[in-house]
Amino acid sequence: MVNLGVSIGELKLKNPVIAASGTFGFGREMEKYYDLSNIGGISSKGLTIKPRLGNDVPRVAECDAGMLNSVGLQNPGIEYFIEHELPHMLSYGCVVIANIAGHQFEEYADMAKLLDKTDVDAIELNLSCPNVSSGCMAFGSDASMIRAVTESVKTVTNKPVWVKLTPNVTSVSEMALAAQDGGADAVSLINTLLGMVIDIETRRPVLKNNAGGYSGPGVKPVAVRMVNEVFNSVDIPVIGMGGIMNAADALEFMIAGACAVQVGTANLVIPTACNDIVISMEEWAQNHEVEEISSLTGCLRRW
């Protein structure tokens, strides 16, 4: 019998598979296809203080081993979320994480205050969305800002606070340490890599926003390296993501140092991806006589 349970600090998940923000909505579409209590958790679509319509289309550009998106944080706003989506999400029977993105420094704490009064299990700070013109990624590529934003949120809530990191920086471990210094309970990485796809006939970017975030299996080696680097740098839990398509990919992240993983773009190709990964992960553990999946975290045998 395999124990797939993992802990992210105080928070317990029945298995390490979390649906990543922006690839799962608020779960309503996916609950038609499988029982969402089978997975470890869901990170909500990125939320902002005010509702956002997002960017103009085209918002997606396919590329080798993945895709770029420039959705631009289309969402109904934090208040609508708390009133109309969160209660339903909390009924799924898995851990629920609210992913929040601010334009202004103060907005993170303002949203966290509202979430503190709810039963949400954790708050993930999106300091790394590449698709909005102001804020967000500007915060995520400045260590002093990461620390300050994290501190400002920790001051107003007792909920676990995860800081989602962008790979679009010189030193991701410097950013992770800043999050830790600010009091983060965990870091999650990586968000998308900033990229561009050009139509050579029109000589225009495929995305109306010109650039967008690259995700999918192509980013996985970059993400695994960053997770391992961060795992070796910080003392707080690391949640790994970036191009996970199957259980083997997820296990790679755990071996690199992740205590849990997020599955994102795979949901857009295989709607049942998270569920499939949990099943295959259990089979793998059984076949390899791994009794506790959490024992894999950081077991990398570096040369």
């Binding site: 922006g22 799962f24 319509l53």
Partner: peptide
């Protein structure tokens, strides 16, 4: 028709502008 990814409504890339019941523009 718009460029699409998931096809099931979660990724929000294939949006088009429509008028809601209150006449407000929405995606």
């Amino acid at each position: 028709e718009e460029r699409m990814a998931c096809g099931v409504g979660v990724c929000l890339v294939c949006v088009c502008k429509t008028k809601g019941s209150d006449g407000e523009i929405e995606n």
